[in-house]
Amino acid sequence: MINKEVKSIDEAIAGVQSNMTFMLGGFGLCGIPENCIDALAKSGINGLTCISNNAGVDDFGLGLLLQKRQIKKMISSYVGENAEFERQMLSGELEVDLIPQGSLAERCRAGGAGIPAFFTPAGYGTEVAEGKEVREFNGQPHILETALEADFAFVKAWKGDTAGNLIYKGTARNFNPMMAMAGKITVAEVEQLVPAGELDPASIHTPGIFVQRIIQGKNYEKRIEQRTVRTKE
């Protein structure tokens, strides 16, 4: 068994540098790598390109890196709910590449799967298609989208083992599995780290081969963005 466990968050993010490209899992604030984001905020590196479906909120998630002007460019599908983000984008301080969510997921998957590019119908006839090759399949126009890769991918799982195998909880899975595949170095932080052999091999979502470092996370806030409830009759 190859042991992927690292004991400190400094070890987990060792090697990160300014101007690198990172992938960060999560949908909204659900399933984001809180510990790694915290450590990146403290690291002081900047000029980053961050590939993440969203950009956090003003004071949590990727919003923490935006506040400190560490991000040069965001590649995302939806960036509402973050006033500082909107301000930096409209003022031109922040470069933003908005791409359809399904294309973002597939571009990450492709990056990890050795597929350099693929055709998709999403975005045909829109701004997203500008400059991209168009080809018809079955009479329908499709645009060429290229794979995404990253120097580091930071993902968050519910359970993980020392071999790097990961299991996600609920909808906290989202982009984490594809990003885990597409990182040159993938760092997984988990709520429960167990010895290899304790997880059912048939229940693992991300095989450990895609993960280079795994760390027992701590102090998870798991903030809820839109707390919506009903009252008991």
Partner: peptide, 30 residues
Amino acid sequence: PFDGEEDADLINAGKQTITTLDGAVFFDSA
């Protein structure tokens, strides 16, 4: 969910807390 039963790991695309019904399934974005 009922008040107090919301789960941060269980949301919809609008980022609202939700519940699941029998037969539900979770999967990745791809």
